[in-house]
């Protein structure tokens, strides 16, 4: 069997695939921003002494983690509009994937916050610092540095999960590739390129995170 690889076709579709790659990156970054903000709020809610605040946060985390991301995407895109909440495909995807990863990020935040010495909380109380200042000025600056590698790994994982959004009509990289290959019937080049693009972006990112990890261990 001979493989029929068409370079001309590769260069023909490459610009469109790269444009779609930018959409994938955009979704990853926006989704990650949602994950960080929501993850921090979930972590703080779960650490609240009042169970009226901590229990719903725990329930949300368990619920999101114990159901598949794909099901959550379908639910948000096809069911929520029936209930009167309707967003375009891409924002829906960003929010769902962001909240999904927020539950994982919240665990990273929680352990990072726990790792800050209790003496730091006690000194903050002794100085009567307002709660907001305690978090923003004392606890988080110390908690975030050691979290960077773990959060970075979730960013890469999330980036690799973005193709799931193609199932709710978001034309990110995989969705676009499918569309192109569906009309030309040249799946070989198209999907090989998709795989290569993901690899070329994920691999350097994971190396960067390894490097950060080693640097943090040294300091």
């Amino acid at each position: 069997m001979s493989i029929d690889w068409d370079w001309a076709y590769v260069f023909e579709i490459l610009p469109e695939l790269l444009r779609a790659t930018l959409i994938t990156i955009r979704i990853s970054l926006l989704g990650f921003a949602v994950a960080l903000v929501a993850g921090l709020l979930i972590a703080m809610a779960r650490m609240n002494r009042n169970w009226v605040i901590s229990q719903p946060a725990l329930f949300f985390v368990e619920f999101v983690r114990l159901t598949p991301l794909l099901v959550q995407l379908f639910f948000a895109f096809y069911v929520l509009p029936v209930l009167g909440v309707s967003l375009p495909a891409e924002p829906t995807g960003v929010v769902v994937i962001g909240l999904h990863y927020a539950t994982y990020a919240s665990e990273v935040f929680r352990s990072g916050i726990r790792a800050v010495a209790t003496g730091q909380w006690e000194a903050s109380i002794a100085l009567s610092l307002p709660t907001f200042a305690v978090w923003r000025r004392v606890i988080l600056p110390q908690a975030i540095r050691p979290m960077i590698p773990a959060l970075g790994n979730y960013l890469i994982q999330m980036f690799k999960d973005v193709p799931l959004l193609s199932t709710i009509t978001v034309y990110e990289l995989l969705g676009t590739a499918n569309l192109i290959a569906g009309s030309s019937f040249r799946y070989l080049e198209t999907l090989t390129l998709v795989g290569l693009i993901f690899l070329l972006l994920s691999y350097p990112s994971s190396l960067l995170i390894r490097y950060l990890e080693i640097r943090l261990e040294k300091s």
């Binding site: 010495a117 003496g119 000194a123 109380i125 002794a126 100085l127 009567s128 110390q142």
Partner: peptide, 16 residues
């Protein structure tokens, strides 16, 4: 509380 100040055995300075 702000009328009370405390010095700890392990200093508890903000390291950053």
């Amino acid at each position: 509380r702000s009328k009370v100040g405390m010095v700890f055995q392990h200093f508890n300075l903000f390291p950053h």
